[in-house]
Design a protein around this nucleic acid. Structure first.
Lengths: 238, 238
DNA sequence: TAGTGGTCTAGACCACAGA
DNA sequence: CTGTGGTCTAGACCACTAA
């Protein structure tokens, strides 16, 4: 967590909106008032409010003020990198992760291409099945560049790899590109998941970049289609 | 198009990146240099660069500079509200819109609920089929609150409703919530689209809000699953 | 008209990267 | 060490809203 002034303001206000101290519909104090409350400049307050509005907490209206939005309506986290653990905990469900595969491999051409690797680079391949309420409905296949992730264990994979990367290895994840398509289910899908009779599967491909723009990870998250849901905010900048 | 200084800087740089004058991998001039080039302050330049990085054009690296990313890789627009017309033009495809329905209705409960309406409010219902390369692959069902959109014509629907709303009616669209799920195809889907034998359909639900946080529009965009693709950037803020 | 958020400025100091 | 981007300030003027 960053300790900038604007992040402090952001976190305090976000917390109050999430726990209901600031209720949907009411107006926040004006930027002028907030800046004297927090003993900071108006631009710094504006940075915090801009973040809040980008993340769906408030709505800024010129000439009027900033209105608190109803965040309880939004059942999924505001877009971004979110791990399976976070989601299932937030949804309050019984969940379990099965690590099916965990090995250091020399990647095939497809993965080498996806991860922008040279021929001698090695990658960690992790295959995990996610079980929610007794059903195996998600198949996660992750490929990490060994250069950035020297070691991985089964324990880490069963918990949250993102936690490990960010808190232990201090890897600087900066942004990700996400792609959602529907494809025909493969034999592997049918083998590892409770696919019922669905012939198709929702594939979410994630490309995770580091601060220096190099590719850390390529991930395929394969979801049984009846259990898939994706929610996103889109801000209008123009 | 806004005429702020930072939007001018943003648009000029975005244009140069899109048309290849600024190639992927090279570094932009420093913020200091850009501010004297554009005769403006550094904060204004920073606003433009922040927008560029949020939209996937560049990557800012502390202590080093701003690197141009490869936008040609990203075949779909950066997240946000994007109209069908924009997409098909960008993809350079032959496209056509069939307006199947256009009427002022008293909405049923489902729509009333989605749009947060009272019992006497009326809505425009617009049903359009999108044909790309001779195949009818998208079914768009839009519901507009009549309060904000007093009139609609077939011509407008065949062009771009967003254009009409923003440029003619000057409606202030501020943000949207998007939801993607897969559902069983309905008889209507099969009737209006070239569905082949697909039993499922990708449904994108859009809730479009005005600046004063009231709901302008609820949209269902139903895509044949083999032609569906969604791409999104996720920035990491922490 | 008074108050709001939107834009913009000209500085300042900091943390980080690289020679 | 220099140069980069990140944060922050104290003002200014503008456009919009509502009384």
């Amino acid at each position: 967590m960053k300790n900038n002034k604007y992040m402090i303001v952001y976190n305090e206000l976000a917390e109050q909106i999430k726990n209901g101290k600031l209720k949907p519909g009411i107006k926040l104090p004006s930027e002028h008032e907030l800046s004297s409350e927090y003993h900071t400049s108006r631009e710094t307050i504006r940075k915090a409010l801009t973040l809040l509005s980008q993340n769906g907490f408030i709505q800024k209206i010129k000439g009027k003020g900033s209105v608190v939005l109803d965040v309880t309506k939004y059942d999924f986290p505001v877009s971004g990198l979110v791990s399976f653990k976070e989601i299932s905990q937030r949804m309050n469900m019984e969940y379990k992760t099965h690590v099916e595969e965990l090995e250091l491999i020399v990647p095939d051409e497809y993965i080498r291409d996806q991860l922008d690797l040279s021929k001698k680079d090695k990658v960690w391949k992790v295959v995990r099945v996610r079980e929610i309420n007794k059903e195996r409905i998600i198949l996660d296949k992750d490929y990490f560049n060994k250069k950035f992730v020297p070691s991985l264990t089964k324990d880490i994979c069963e918990d949250s790899i993102y936690n490990y990367l960010e808190n232990e290895l201090k890897v600087n994840i900066s942004f990700a590109k996400k792609e959602i398509v529907v494809e025909e289910a493969t034999d592997e899908d049918r083998q590892l998941m409770d696919l019922n009779d669905y012939e198709h599967i929702v594939v979410v491909r994630n490309y995770v970049y580091l601060k220096d723009t190099s590719l850390l990870e390529y991930t395929e998250s394969r979801h049984r289609l009846d259990k898939f849901k994706f929610v996103d905010f889109a801000r209008r900048e123009k």
